[in-house]
Design a protein around this nucleic acid. Sequence first.
DNA 1: GCCAACCCATACGTTTTCGGTATGCCAATG
DNA 2: CATTGGCATACCGAAAACGTATGGGTTGGC
Lengths: 295, 295
Amino acid sequence: MDLRRLRYFVAVAEARSVGKAAERLRMAQPPLSVQIRKLEAEVGAPLFRRGTRGMDLTEAGQALLVRASEALALASDGIEAARAVASGKRGRLSVGYMFVLANAILPRLIPELRRSVPGVDLDFAELSASTREARVLDRSVTVALCMPAINHPEIQVARIGAQRFMLAIPTSSPLARLGSVPMARLHGRPLIALPHPDHGPASSAVVPLLRRHQVVMPIASRVETVHSAMSLVLAGEGLAILPACAQLGAPRGIVFRPLRDATDSLDIAVCWRRDSQSPLIGTFIKCAEKAVARM
Amino acid sequence: MDLRRLRYFVAVAEARSVGKAAERLRMAQPPLSVQIRKLEAEVGAPLFRRGTRGMDLTEAGQALLVRASEALALASDGIEAARAVASGKRGRLSVGYMFVLANAILPRLIPELRRSVPGVDLDFAELSASTREARVLDRSVTVALCMPAINHPEIQVARIGAQRFMLAIPTSSPLARLGSVPMARLHGRPLIALPHPDHGPASSAVVPLLRRHQVVMPIASRVETVHSAMSLVLAGEGLAILPACAQLGAPRGIVFRPLRDATDSLDIAVCWRRDSQSPLIGTFIKCAEKAVARM
DNA sequence: GCCAACCCATACGTTTTCGGTATGCCAATG
DNA sequence: CATTGGCATACCGAAAACGTATGGGTTGGC
């Protein structure tokens, strides 16, 4: 059963004539006649009544016609849909993001995305630091908004911005009275540590910063997420040094203060599988850059 | 766009491997690989990700897959449907019938038909004597239950029974007291004449019968249908000589009496276009014969 | 670290199928 | 009776598909 035969069949049925249909199909009449007879042989019954003034569908032919036209439409629609997905006009974009970035970026990113790729189904999923890499690798997210970037040979990265480190402290702390906090004032204070994803769970993202200023902070707790860190800060367990954007998700009772003389920052990056040929990634990066620029 | 390619594509997508799919399709692996690449060239985008352990659909491939499988199913369903119609397992049978036969035959015929051809859509239409031929010729009915048969070179006929002529008279008529009426008693009485369809509107179906018995009946009225005839009989306009089955549709106040010594009858026949290759006609005739036999 | 196994891609010759041209057959028409 | 219009058949050249042989890349085991 060949789609070409069905196409020919539909053409003949609509033209009610082999000759007319052949003309419309830009081919000679005899081969078309042959194809129709082959189709009839395959079905095992005549599909047309041959009259002296052209061809007319039999009942069997009518039964075939409706389904054949639908099948033709579906097939070409399928090709078209595949093209649309490949070109980025349609499809699905699954966006992973880390909680720190959610409040700062998503409100600007999502409308921008919907405007840029209106035919695309978007879905969003929060990523934890420990599983984000796997979620990108197994394609359960197409792109990931990360801070900092994922470091993996199969994963490609586009830096779209950076966030300065700031000090997260309880409003009640004496340090909160300062406009900015000199690094030296942190010496000896307990630190709520967030691990750097590249350096194992016992690491901290701010080790280089502290070392450079020769500040030593005993680690009071290790936590996985910025909101855990802020909860512990609020509980008086210690201070946290967090990227600036985290303050948008900060609870009442926590204030952020810049660190004087410390310009260290964490990169905000879009990360995706190197072999993902999704055409939406480029567009996504542009949208994310816009969203970051207006942060 | 070729249905074979789509079939191959679906097979590869389901097997997630060219080799496995080739085996299932009973063909060698290389040509299948070639066909897949040709399909990808036609779409203009890769449909599979080639990994080291087989093939995996891209998003574009997934978009195509759903539609391609539907298209395949529709196409083979179309072929199947055409076969079913051609074999008489499905389809439509449009049955025309003349009013005289309706009450006598349809109640037995319709259940019989529904049992014999359960997958077939039946529809029924009353035919008038003047248009029945055209309705068969233009195929607006597939078969016609007629009395008498249609006489036309393009129309084929199967005789399935016959109905004796009987006298239709008002209950109040003195003739109604007789068990059967001798032909001689009709001499001189006014006749409600039904034309014989083969002999023009001025004819009467009972001319040969009367002539053979040398009975002369003046024609009081000419009517088109048996129910008109019976209405006029009831109105006292005259007598009618009608096929026996008409009495099933007779109103109160009319009785039918056999004609003594007159065995003339009208054929009941199934009529259809000679070139109609509907496989249902044979079955229909069998059902109609059964229905007539139990009249 | 090399070799074997696995899987897809490419190359080439063979076979099948398709399309074009020429022509025949049939019925309707004048 | 000839002509016209429409489909069917015959034959040939062209295109497409299939099979066999083979290459190349990766995985996994010894």
